[in-house]
Amino acid sequence: MFEKLMNIDRRIIFVLVAVVVIIPTLIPIRLPTRVAEPTQKLYDYIDELPPGSTIIMAFDYGPSSLAEPEPMAKAVLQHCFNKDVRVIGITLYANMPTLADKLMQKIATENGAVYGEDYTFLGYRPGALQVILGMGTNIAGVFETDYHGTAIAEIPMMENITNYDQIDLLLDLAAGSSTEAWIIYANTRYNLKIAAGVTGVIIAQMYPYLQTNQLVGFMPGYLGATEYEKLLNAPGDGTIGLNTASFVHLLIIGLVALGNIAFFIQRRREE
């Protein structure tokens, strides 16, 4: 019986996973969450920025990983627009500009932010290292125009911005190694403050940088998005998603436990 259990058709597991995602999506629930230090630090930093400050939001993820960074971007944009903090959007990913542009437009419309005054999207330039280092000397040297072709010089909020010296924070929404690149080349070379919102896969490697203050703060995956939404008191996609994720996590923990019980019983029998 246990051998049968261990060699169960994987499609049965797939069906179980599908069921525990579909049911909570149809019937959403809300469980209480705590806010951990990394997200709290980021929230506090943005919250304490004086009105008129400028941050860069780097959309360094692609459609393949948008589930986690998108709710983070929404929450932080909402926070910035409500605090009169200006946002410059860029991306180091070639397959991202359309998504980032539309997302910024959507959140800006919802919060009454004006393009060119409260936010702008500069788009994409190839070569992450070249872009990071180039913007440190002259942003207009890398992005002479915004994504829609308007010259940087004609964008009101860019009037007094030359390089990183006038930027208060760079928030990297990352699904790869871009946060480390921003830390190594923008923070070390130009003293630009860096924060991040990262997908689950890279959460663990952010902690050494947080402890050294090379990262001001960061949002760890779905959990980070949920925490930021909680701090804003505006539950959104992160909160809904994380509550649904609870059930899948329980299923996977149960499967691991079951697999191990079957494994140990079988091993004892063999001995």
């Binding site: 597991i13 995602v21 459609p63 948008l66 589930a67 996977i252 697999g259 140990f264």
Partner: peptide, 25 residues
């Protein structure tokens, strides 16, 4: 976008299956 996102979402199924089969103490 839908194809890219779905392609990687398949990993949720495989990680569950792998956890059950290979994650042994």
């Amino acid at each position: 976008v839908p194809m890219d996102a779905t392609m990687f979402s398949l990993l949720a199924f495989f990680i569950a299956s792998a956890a059950y089969r290979a994650f042994r103490a």
